[in-house]
C-alpha cells in the first residue's frame, strides 16, 4: 500500500514543521518565566515575577484597557454596518456583490502602511479626532474578511430560499431578516467576530502610524518594553497569546459543534464549506503584519 509507506516521511516533515512553528512560542514562554537565560538549552529557573510586575504596571493595565476600548468600539461599528450591508448586497444587488468579491485582494494592494498614508494625508490636523479615523481605518482593513465571513454564512443557510419562504408567508423583509436570517447566521457571525476581534486586538500598523505614542495599545506597549526588559516583554506576549489561544479554542470548539450538527443532518462532511473557512483567514493576517 502506497499510503502506508509514505507516512514515514510525512511524520518527519510534519515534525520539523511543527518544531519550527512552535519554537518561537516556546522560547518566548521560557523567557517570560525565567530570571536569566543564556548559554544553556533551557533556562535554569522558573519564576512568575515578570507577570507579577506586569500586573503592577499601570501602563500595562491601561494599554490593555485601550486595546479593549478600541477593539469593541470598532467591532460594534463594523457589525452594525456590515451585517445588514452584506445581506442587502447579497440578496438584492448581485452586481455589487460581484464587485465586492474582488475586495479580498484589497489588503494586498493597499496594505496598512499605504492606507495610513492616505488617512494621514486627509485627516492629520483636521477637526476629526484621530481615534475616529483609526476606527474608520480598521473598518476598511477588516472589510474583505468581514465581507467573506458574513457572505459565507448567508450562503450556507440558503438565505435566498429562506427569504422567499418568509416573503410568501407574509413577512416583511425586515421581520424576516431579524427573525430568521440573524438567528441562523449567529454562529458563523460569532466565528467571524472572534477572528476579527483577535486581529483588532493585536493591531499595530494603523494605530502606531495614526496615533502612535498618544494612544499606547497592547502591541505598542509590547514594542516599548521590548527595548527595555526582554523578560517582561515576553510576559506581555505570553499573556497576549494565552488570550488568542483561548479564542482559537473557542472557535475550534464551536466549529466542531456545528460540524456535528451538520453531520447529523446530511450524513456527510461539508467539505466545501470547510474549505471556504480555511481559505478565509489569510486576508485577515495581512492586517497585523
Amino acid at each position: 500500500m502506497r499510503t502506508k509507506k509514505r507516512h514515514y516521511s510525512t511524520y518527519i516533515i510534519m515534525a520539523l514543521f511543527g518544531f519550527y512553528m512552535v519554537f518561537p512560542f516556546v522560547s518566548t514562554g521560557l523567557y517570560a518565566t525565567s530570571t536569566e537565560w543564556s548559554n544553556s538549552i533551557l533556562p535554569r529557573d522558573f519564576t512568575v515575577q515578570w507577570f507579577a510586575e506586569l500586573m503592577k504596571d499601570p501602563a500595562f493595565i491601561s494599554a490593555v484597557m485601550r486595546s479593549i476600548v478600541l477593539t469593541f468600539t470598532t467591532l460594534a461599528v463594523v457589525l452594525v454596518i456590515m451585517v445588514p450591508t452584506v445581506f442587502i448586497v447579497y440578496m438584492y444587488f448581485p452586481r455589487v456583490d460581484q464587485f465586492m468579491k474582488g475586495l479580498v485582494l484589497m489588503p494586498y494592494a493597499i496594505p496598512g502602511v499605504i492606507l495610513a498614508t492616505g488617512l494621514l494625508r486627509m485627516y492629520s490636523g483636521s477637526l476629526i479626532p484621530m481615534f475616529a479615523v483609526l476606527v474608520g481605518g480598521l473598518f476598511i482593513g477588516s472589510l474583505p474578511f468581514m465581507y467573506q465571513g458574513v457572505r459565507n454564512s448567508l450562503e450556507s443557510i440558503q438565505t435566498k430560499n429562506l427569504m422567499e419562504a418568509a416573503d410568501l408567508l407574509g413577512a416583511s423583509k425586515f421581520i424576516a431578516f431579524v427573525k430568521i436570517i440573524l438567528p441562523n447566521i449567529k454562529l458563523g457571525l460569532l466565528i467571524t467576530t472572534l477572528l476579527i476581534f483577535s486581529s483588532f486586538f493585536g493591531e499595530f500598523v494603523l494605530t502606531n502610524l495614526l496615533i502612535g505614542g498618544n494612544y499606547e495599545t497592547i502591541r505598542i506597549y509590547m514594542l516599548r518594553r521590548m527595548n527595555e526588559n526582554g523578560h517582561l516583554a515576553s510576559a506581555v506576549m505570553v499573556a497576549y497569546f494565552i488570550l488568542l489561544i483561548l479564542i482559537s479554542l473557542l472557535i475550534t470548539y464551536m466549529t466542531s459543534n456545528k460540524r456535528r450538527k451538520n453531520l447529523r443532518k446530511k450524513g456527510e462532511p461539508l467539505t466545501e464549506m470547510d474549505e471556504a473557512e480555511v481559505l478565509l483567514p489569510p486576508t485577515e493576517d495581512s492586517l497585523t503584519n
Binding site: 443557510i157 440558503q158 430560499n161 422567499e164 419562504a165 418568509a166 410568501l168 441562523n184
Partner: peptide, 13 residues
C-alpha cells in the same frame, strides 16, 4: 399564495 419548495425551506432556528 402558498409555496412549497423542493428544498423545504424550513426555518432551521
Amino acid at each position: 399564495v402558498g409555496f412549497v419548495f423542493q428544498s423545504y425551506a424550513l426555518f432551521p432556528n
